[in-house]
Amino acid sequence: MKYLLLIYMDENAMSDTEREHCYVESAQVAQDLHAKGQFVASAPLHPVATATSVRVREGKSLVTDGPFAETREQLGGFYLVNAQDLDEAIAIANRIPGARVGTVEIRPVLEIAGLPKS
Rank of each mutant, 00 (worst) to 15 (best):
A43E: 06
A30H: 00
G77S: 08
A83K: 00
M14P: 10
P47D: 05
P44A: 14
V104C: 05
P67Q: 12
G76A: 12
R107W: 06
G59F: 11
L80W: 08
V104A: 02
V101S: 07
E25I: 03
Y8E: 02
Y79K: 00
M14N: 06
V54D: 05
D16R: 08
K2M: 02
E25G: 02
V81R: 00
N94S: 15
Y3L: 04
N82G: 15
M1S: 13
A27C: 01
A83T: 02
D87T: 14
D16M: 13
K36P: 14
A89R: 01
L33Q: 03
G77E: 00
E111M: 09
I92W: 02
C22F: 13
C22P: 01
K2C: 15
R72K: 11
S15H: 14
N94T: 13
H46P: 10
R107I: 14
Q84F: 12
V109W: 04
G37K: 12
C22Q: 13
E18M: 10
I112N: 08
F78V: 09
R107P: 14
L75Y: 03
Q38D: 03
L5D: 01
A30Q: 00
A30L: 00
A83S: 08
R19T: 10
D10M: 15
E111P: 14
G98K: 03
I96A: 02
A89E: 07
F78M: 13
E20I: 12
S26A: 09
T103Q: 08
Y23V: 06
N12K: 08
R55C: 07
Q31A: 08
D32A: 12
I106N: 05
D85A: 09
A91W: 14
P97D: 04
A41I: 05
R55L: 06
D85T: 03
L6Q: 09
A91P: 01
L5G: 11
C22W: 03
H34R: 06
I96M: 12
V40A: 04
A27L: 01
S15F: 09
D10I: 15
R19Q: 02
V104L: 08
M9R: 08
A113K: 15
L62Y: 15
E88R: 15
E18I: 13
Y3C: 04
K36A: 11
N82V: 02
P47R: 09
P116F: 14
V81Q: 01
V54E: 09
T52H: 15
F78T: 03
A35R: 10
A41Y: 04
H34E: 09
